[in-house]
Amino acid sequence: MLYSLAGIALFCIALRAVILATAPLRAILAVNVMSSGVFLVLVALARRTPGLVADPVPHAMVITGIVVAVSATAMAIVLTQRLRANVSAPTVEDTPGAGP
């Protein structure tokens, strides 16, 4: 139970960090902490009663969740890199149709 509460705490702390984040990298890190929180809840609740065998279904859900989180994180990092690379290329704003 303590672990699942800790998971929720991680989720909430990171949620606040995402809401307030201005830098993409900070937001990406916060989102990853959030997902760790969710996974912690899933795994912790899978073994609520000491001594019993853990429920395998939440474990499988965590593995699936981790893979999804990795994919999304990789995409977010590359998007951030594109954003930075474009900053030094001022031509984007000059193309026709780019005006407001």
Partner: peptide
């Protein structure tokens, strides 16, 4: 945001503590 997140935490923690102790899953 701190206030909102604190409220979310309180709600979730309450929900978590109210879960039945015996496992209900598909184990």
């Amino acid at each position: 945001s701190t206030l909102a997140v604190a409220l979310v935490f309180a709600g979730l923690a309450f929900a978590m503590l109210s879960l039945p102790a015996e496992p209900t899953g598909l184990a």
